[in-house]
Amino acid sequence: MKELDITELERKFQEKIDNEIRIEPNDWMPDAYRKTLIRQISQHAHSEVVGMLPEGNWITRAPNLRRKAVLLAKVQDEAGHGLYLYSAVETLGADREETIDDLHTGKAKYSSIFNYPTLTWADMGAIGWLVDGAAIMNQVPLCRCSYGPYARAMVRVCKEESFHQRQGFEIMTKLAQGTPEQKAMAQDALNRFWWPALMMFGPNDADSPHTAQSMKWKIKRHTNDELRQQFVDITVPQAEMIGLTVPDPDLKWNAETGHYEFGEINWDEFWQVVSGNGPCNKDRVDARRKAKEDGSWVREAANAYAEKRKARKAS
């Protein structure tokens, strides 16, 4: 294609975006837009699937039948989110299995929060409350993402995420109102998950080189720092309400700005975890790789059987 044509196509593309017209799979789009989306949506899909592991860790030890059922339902939802998102990736021409292999070789990332271990039952509360809570902050604006299939997947996902956040907060509330052992368990989970939850929004805006372009393309609607602030403002009063202490000595309410001020995130830890040195990175990726390897004979059998059936029908 001639350079002029591309400039013209790009202009029209941006015009559609500026007018809030959704981009659909068969529409022309710049390569960089497609690549950014493939990277972001597949990371998102991997996060849903890897995220099943820390919570799956407690299903067999859930303290009663109701909690067990709710946790099963939640983790099942996350698998469903993974499916919708892998389908959205496929609409961009990417191959689902190839993107999964990128996860297994460490090339593709996923949310760093899932590289922290789930040590007690209270972690199921902390994850639902904080991690799904943070995911909602990130995902609600994505329901208006310029790419149609991603936006529509997010609409379905967000409905379920609010149930996840509520069940997590309910677990925490129950613990916080319980015996001293239960309250200590809840506080300990908050201590461990608070900072990693803040890290879920990604680096500070100054260190986030892709943000400007993503906002121009309306893939992103808010910066990392805006979303993180919104999360802190909503979550701190919830902690206070149930009598837990947010583990940040610098946390204070600023009546003038109407926002909480909070302490500096340990960015060294963040980058270490992102680059593979979190407490559970290896365990998580190993578990996913093992699932794929152990399942290869099953997938081969399903394909072979489908082929046989087709051949029998034809003859």
Binding site: V49, G56, V75, Y86, A287, V298
Partner: peptide, 11 residues
């Protein structure tokens, strides 16, 4: 949970 041969079977 989380270890199925395909995501559909996890579900």
């Amino acid at each position: 949970c989380g270890h199925g041969p395909i995501l559909e079977e996890d579900i």
